[in-house]
């Protein structure tokens, strides 16, 4: 049994390939920890517990994210956040949060296998995404520190500009990952020439 053990990312069956021509590079960052955190931002006990465990208050400003040490906290809704932890740490962070939040109206749910993260990099990264994403990705409108949930083709995604370079990180759902990668590879053909 143990000899069978392996972790498989949602994109295990997709040949990622090299970026051609001016097409952006698409890279999967596998096996990060993803925790769905919910609580009332007006509840000081909730905020205090989160600060205690994650070292930062969850962002109250919609469509922003904060980084705190190894953790990143993305705003998903007025009482909902996505906490990203390094690989393998989601269990212990969830346990710490649950402990700190004991008795506080809140929710901490592990969704680590439900999501994966792509980095899309290169001068046509925004153009590739804009192929079928209605969000305004102009660097003056969508800057590092911001994030947004929107759609890409016919699936949902959470997107944030990368701090370095001309790119974005895109968090997508496991079951849609194959579809979205095939879609991106198809859309990338437009940038492969010239």
């Amino acid at each position: 049994m143990a000899d069978l053990f392996q972790l498989q990312s949602p994109l295990v069956n997709i040949e990622m390939g090299e970026a051609k021509g001016n097409a952006p590079e698409i890279r999967e960052i596998t096996f990060l920890g993803y925790l769905n955190l919910r609580g009332k931002p007006g509840n000081t006990a909730f905020l205090a517990a989160v600060i205690k465990v994650l070292g930062a208050e969850p962002p109250i400003e919609p469509n922003t994210m904060v980084e705190s040490g190894d953790y990143r906290i993305y705003w998903l809704g007025p009482d909902e956040w996505l906490v990203i932890t390094p690989t393998g740490q989601q269990g212990q962070v969830q346990a710490k949060l649950l402990e700190a939040l004991d008795g506080v109206f809140s929710s901490v749910v592990d969704n680590s296998s439900g999501l994966t993260l792509l980095e899309i990099n290169g001068k046509n990264a925004a153009a590739l995404i804009a192929t079928d994403c209605p969000l305004d990705l102009h660097p003056g409108k969508f800057k590092p520190g911001q994030c947004a949930q929107t759609r890409l083709a016919k699936a949902g995604m959470t997107i944030a500009p990368l701090r370095n370079g001309e790119g974005f990180e895109v968090i997508i759902r496991r079951s849609f990952a194959d579809y979205l990668l095939l879609w991106m590879q198809d859309a990338a053909v437009a940038f492969e020439l010239a």
């Binding site: 469509n63 209605p134 969000l135």
Partner: peptide, 10 residues
């Protein structure tokens, strides 16, 4: 009211 102006398809 939270995210601002977005396309109807969202």
């Amino acid at each position: 009211p939270w995210c601002g102006e977005r396309d109807e398809s969202e």
